[in-house]
Write a protein that binds this DNA or RNA. Structure first.
Lengths: 339, 339
DNA sequence: CTGAAAGCGCTTACAG
DNA sequence: CTGAAAGCGCTTACAG
């Protein structure tokens, strides 16, 4: 049962392959009867045009490559979903490649994508400051980075961590919290440093002092531990009345620890997280108010940008920051006093 | 800057395209000097063979399609990762398609994959009992289902929910727990019914009665609520001393609620979850002992099975159950008495 | 209105 | 040892 080709249809319909091609694609002019007849035969035979041949001819594959060092990670995922949605809407398929932080795998994937003649490339990563060794030489096709600092020509869409952190912290200040602390992940991460900067921006704008900043891990355990450090041996008057957390995981650990110490959220301490990771944020007691980096929207934007570049548009290279949004739930309460 | 082809290399090297082809692919016999020379020219020109042409010739694309109604969901993901790993190891790329529960999108994707001449297909879904309308007609290429009941010819690899639940419940019985309850998700899910059956299998084998089974949602909130129902107005002697949960989310809600009521885990009540969803299970206090469906391994197995079918092996159609494993952490403690 | 021919970029017997 | 030719499955001017 060899797969059937345009020649089979032509023979069966008693016409030339050129006619079949035009009929099937609804192109050119021809007698309606001929067109209908060819259609019928093609249908009966189950003719399915070979896109490989088409692409070879067109020099365009309607396919793009997606390379990540952490495709299956929970943060790369919403991005990936957004990118895919944008591409699917433009009828183009995506080749998934997981580099897994191995330079050799990465190089192989990139070479393979280029040989498959993808129309464009998108790079994503677990961290914005990830490094892709394969990105030494600019590929001959459009490239866009998503939540990854660009090392190649082409635009890079990034969540605005700094502005997001400022937004979250300002929310706390607006609610009349006076002693706001910051608990975040490892300072080796660019995201941690940017969020810290945003935290300080907001403090300064509100004319507040800040009740300390602690850096540890991206985990609930660290949030729990940080609370101990923040409250142990600290006289009640000097304790934070709000904590801006660098991630929802940390925030959840913080909330649980606070509750464990008999402190009430948000009455005694207001909490803001970061990520809007639904499954954690919504399940926390009380549900977490948190900064949403809008990863999926970021992915959509990136996909659309890539498509327009493929269509010939010329997009400026370099980072492009996309705003975060504040997702308000219940961990901050309402203002203690109205100004 | 047109992309350079085999003809460019041939002209530049002063040989025929046939020679370039053989040289570049290390095939046939030829003077080492010629081969080296061609290699050098190809390298200098940055020649990158066009896989589209190659595939057209070979009638094999070294590409497979992956269709899911929930690619970016947290359960489809480990599976996807496993499949991709197995395929990458065989040098084949994967086309990602997200059907998003929309029959039309799904049909479009399937048609597109077939036209792209993928060598095989894998179907995955959010639920094992999902239905893909597009699966009415068997495609002319190998297909495998992963964690999805098969409606097409071809093997289906499924986590053995029933045996897994039995394993988890038996663990509780072996630890001398006598009044084991079950709290799970919506009974509309095949997985819920299978896990319930496994729960009962184990009870029967241990000669135990069972302390009730409650079905609700897949959420922490439901776990919390279920505890209220299980303990409210129930005389201490009739309360469960162990709970087998249908998911880690539920288990976490259960643990938190128990703690909130002043009950200690595992001393007063032992808990077993299902999923081994690391981020939840490890962060629970105490960390959750849970049934691991080994999704990634399932994906790997599926990928390998598909590849071997593509290579001509003939695999029996129908469901194939893959065992779950018990991940022991701290929520069950040690035996109260040694037999 | 329809078809013959050239071409997309490669590989593979088959000659020489 | 090397090259000319046919073929993979399609499309698109160009004739007729």
């Amino acid at each position: 049962m060899a797969t059937i080709t345009i020649h089979d249809v032509a023979r069966e319909a008693g016409v030339s392959i050129a006619t079949v091609s035009k009929a099937v694609n609804g192109k050119g002019k021809m007698r309606p009867a001929t067109r209908a007849h060819v259609h019928r035969v093609a249908e009966r035979l189950g003719f399915r045009p070979n896109d490989l041949a088409l692409s070879l001819h067109r020099r365009r594959s309607y396919t793009v490559g997606l390379l990540s060092n952490d495709i299956y990670g929970r943060f790369a995922l919403p991005i990936l979903g957004g990118v895919e949605a944008a591409l699917a809407a433009r009828r183009t398929s995506v080749f998934l490649c997981n580099a897994a932080d191995d330079p050799e795998t990465e190089g192989r994937h990139l070479a393979s994508l280029l040989r498959k003649r993808v129309d464009g490339l998108v790079f994503t990563a677990r961290r914005t400051d990830s490094f892709f060794p394969a990105e030494r030489t600019t590929p001959p096709i459009p490239v866009v980075h998503v939540n990854l600092e660009p090392r190649l020509d082409g635009p890079a869409l990034l969540a605005d961590d700094r502005a997001g952190a400022r937004l979250g912290t300002a929310h706390l200040a607006a609610l009349e919290r006076k002693r706001i602390a910051h608990v975040s992940g490892p300072q080796g991460f660019a995201a941690v440093r940017l969020r810290q900067a945003g935290f300080e921006d907001a403090l300064q704008e509100a004319g507040l002092e800040g009740a300390g900043a602690l850096f540890g891990e991206w985990s609930e355990g660290w949030g729990w531990e940080a609370v101990a450090r923040l409250y142990q041996d600290v006289p009640p008057g000097k304790r934070p009345d709000a904590i801006f957390c660098g991630s929802d995981q940390i925030a959840r650990g913080v909330v649980d620890a606070l509750c464990h110490r008999g402190l009430a959220v948000p009455v005694d301490v207001a909490i803001v997280g970061f990520d809007n990771w639904e499954v954690l944020a919504a399940a926390t007691r009380p549900p977490l108010t948190t900064v949403d980096p809008c990863l999926e929207a970021l992915g959509v934007l990136a996909g659309e940008t890539l498509m327009s570049m493929i269509d010939g548009a010329i997009e400026p290279s370099g980072a492009r920051l996309v705003p975060c949004q504040l997702m308000v739930r219940a961990s901050c309460g309402t203002p203690r006093a109205t100004a």
